[in-house]
Computed example of a mutant assay.
Amino acid sequence: MDRFAAMKTFVRVAELGTLSAAAREFGLTQPAVSQQIAALERHLDTRLFHRSTRQLALTEGGETYYQHARQILQAVDEAEESTGELSAGLRGNLRLHGPVGFGQMHLSPIVIEFQHLHPELTIELVLDDRFADLIAEGVDVAIRFGDLKSSDLVARKLATFERILVASPNYLVAHGNPEKPQDLLQHRHIRFAWSPQGEAIPLVGPDGPVTVPVRSTFLANNAFVLNEALCAGLGIGGAQVPLIQSLLDEGKLVRVLPDYSYAPMDIHVVYATARFMPRKVRAFIDHLASSLKRVPGLRTIRIPEKNV
């Protein structure tokens, strides 16, 4: 038995929760993965998983072995990475995750530029508005918006941006310009389908926070669709300034209730550990932080990483 290979397989099975998922990742058959785990259990003389028809769960001994095995694998990666510092170029795989709208408009050209700089890297960019499980999904770096929930990950705040109410000039000519937040209930509203506030929007104005009821008549789960609806004059809606700055500059959209806005939104870069950061991860984060300075509507920030 190749103990190191079996250890790597065990760690990914523990993180992914199934033999088949680990087999797909390693390009192995499920029986081959099962045999590696069984051989490791015989070598350790302990049961590592509780097995069911759908998923595997670590035993107490398996959890202890997982924590030690993961540290060992990270130490090996660190040793190899340190040696790799002496050689030119970044190599290996880099898996990135980010939100759809910002990802399509601003993140994808940043990633493409990074690929040009490091052609020996294999980069995978996944755009999805949900929060990915970095460990289970093998994500090296995630870009996340808003407040971060407590976890065992490390985060670094890179930038912040405004979210404002906008509409097309044609809509305002036809329906009037609201003079106070309460007037929004008399207007057609455009919003994300999954908005947690539903038929109310939280704004911040001269006198502090205020929650305003609205009447949503067009909903979508994609920022670009919503922006098209706004430009088409379907109503008033909130938008992220980095996604509409060009539309504001061209006069296709105008700001509504300029004394009011949503709370600012923070952009964080999130990764698994600060103890050992692979050179490719460090290089991409530095490239991202530098590139965000060119994005209209963003205010970049230099804050050290922290555990979240």
Rank of each mutant, 00 (worst) to 15 (best):
S195G: 05
A193S: 09
G238I: 08
V166Y: 07
V173C: 00
E199P: 08
I244M: 11
F276R: 07
G238Q: 08
V241M: 13
L257A: 08
D259C: 12
A263K: 06
V225H: 11
E162N: 10
V212S: 10
P196M: 03
G198N: 09
A232M: 14
L257N: 08
R156F: 03
W194C: 14
A232C: 12
G198W: 04
V212A: 08
V225S: 13
A200H: 07
R275I: 09
E162C: 05
S168Q: 01
F192H: 10
G205A: 12
G238P: 01
H268N: 07
W194I: 12
H268Y: 04
E179A: 14
A200R: 11
L230Q: 11
P209D: 09
V269M: 11
I164G: 12
R255C: 13
R188T: 06
Y271R: 00
A239S: 06
G251W: 01
E228A: 14
G237V: 01
R191G: 08
A193I: 03
Q240N: 14
Q186R: 02
S261V: 02
N227G: 15
F276S: 12
N227I: 12
L219N: 09
W194K: 15
A232D: 14
Q240S: 14
L185N: 08
L158P: 00
T160G: 14
Y260D: 04
R156K: 09
V241K: 13
P206M: 15
P264Q: 01
A167M: 03
A200C: 11
S195D: 14
F276I: 09
Y171M: 11
D183H: 08
A239W: 07
F192N: 10
A229Y: 00
S261F: 01
Y171K: 09
P206K: 15
P202A: 15
H189P: 00
H189A: 15
D249E: 06
A200V: 04
F218I: 06
D183K: 02
A263Y: 00
P258W: 09
A193R: 06
R275H: 13
A272G: 13
H175F: 05
Q240A: 14
L185Y: 01
F276N: 10
H175P: 04
V214C: 06
A272R: 15
P202R: 05
G205Q: 11
E250L: 06
L226Q: 01
Y271A: 11
V270L: 03
V212H: 07
P181T: 02
V269L: 11
L185W: 04
E228Y: 02
N170W: 05
E162K: 09
V204M: 13
Y262G: 05
